[in-house]
């Protein structure tokens, strides 16, 4: 009797509706994560896992300079990517929200999604064409006589990784900021000026704090996936642009060392999570919504 009434209650209905999704998420996301987590404490054996518990993998991760260096570079790269992406996304979001007429906003948002119409892989590849030794930029500058030999700092280093990733993630950064800006009551900006502040100071004191919830969301949406990006550094990173995901791939598929690859993965996840949490904590005052 009691059981039946629970299933008929609102909470019961909610759980019933949620359960297929929850089940799916458990199978495809949580289960592999748990597997990786367990693997990371096991002993390596070529192309297989030896089921003896060990902390050696983690000891290696933290003692060997290659992992810490790559992890550091990953964080630095995705940090720079995040900064570049969010700083360029903000003016775009601001323009669409404040200067595009309401009737045209949907069109603009639609235009912003156009890069997604081609595969991620192809977009990365096209950057290679643009930035390469005989690429679009170098050919153009050579042809114009601005430079006399091709620039080599464009491709196969951190610059190219940053440019490519910043371009790929721009829409993800624009949308949350746009939404936050859209929610700002325009009379607040007039009030700011009415109370004696210039447009710029009104932006600093009113618009920016109110847009911060969107900025924080953008930062997380860009930072977390780019820290673990694999395709971009592989294609345009060169030797100096390699990131942590490349070494994970190496451990798993080239060296067949599953436990070591898992330990690096778990460490990278933990570090990225920690950085994200610290960032959210530092910005917590912007994230309190109206009750």
């Amino acid at each position: 009797m009691k059981r039946r009434s629970f299933l008929r209650s609102e909470a019961g209905h909610g759980l019933l509706m949620l359960s297929p999704t929850a089940l799916y998420a458990t199978i495809v996301m949580a289960a592999p994560l748990v597997a990786v987590f367990v693997f990371s404490f096991m002993t390596p054996g070529y192309l297989k896992v030896v089921w003896t518990f060990t902390l050696n993998n983690y000891a290696k991760v933290f003692s060997s300079p290659i992992y810490t260096a790559l992890l550091g570079r990953s964080l630095l790269t995705s940090g720079v990517v995040t900064a570049v992406t969010v700083l360029t996304a903000f003016p775009i979001a601001y323009f669409i929200s404040f200067y595009v007429s309401p009737a045209r906003k949907s069109l603009w948002l639609f235009l912003i999604t156009i890069p997604f119409w081609t595969s991620y892989l192809i977009r990365v590849f096209l950057w290679k064409v643009i930035l390469g030794y005989n690429g679009v930029i170098n050919s153009a500058f050579l042809g114009l006589g601005i430079i006399h030999e091709p620039m080599t700092f464009l491709l196969y280093n951190m610059n190219s990784v940053v440019i490519t990733l910043a371009h790929s993630y721009a829409p993800f950064a624009i949308l949350p900021i746009f939404v936050a800006l859209e929610k700002i009551d325009r009379s607040l900006l007039e009030a700011g000026q009415d109370l004696g502040e210039s447009r710029f100071m009104t932006f600093i004191r009113v618009t920016l704090p109110l847009a911060m919830s969107g900025v924080v969301a953008s930062v997380l949406i860009v930072f977390i996936p780019t820290a673990g990006d694999y395709v971009t550094p592989t294609l345009v990173g060169g030797a100096n642009g390699q990131m942590i995901a490349n070494v994970i791939q190496l451990q798993y598929f080239k060296l067949g060392d599953y436990p070591m690859g898992s330990a690096v993965s778990i460490t990278a996840m933990a570090v990225v999570t920690a950085v994200a949490l610290i960032f959210v904590f530092l910005n917590r005052r912007f994230l309190r919504g109206p009750k």
């Binding site: 009379s187 000026q193 009415d194 109370l195 502040e197 109110l210 912007f286």
Partner: peptide, 20 residues
């Protein structure tokens, strides 16, 4: 003379209280 330099202040219809 821009709004921020005028000797006027306004009570807005929506009150425009800064929510943050």
């Amino acid at each position: 003379v821009p709004a921020n330099k005028r000797p006027t202040n306004m009570v807005f219809q929506s009150y425009a209280i800064f929510p943050h």
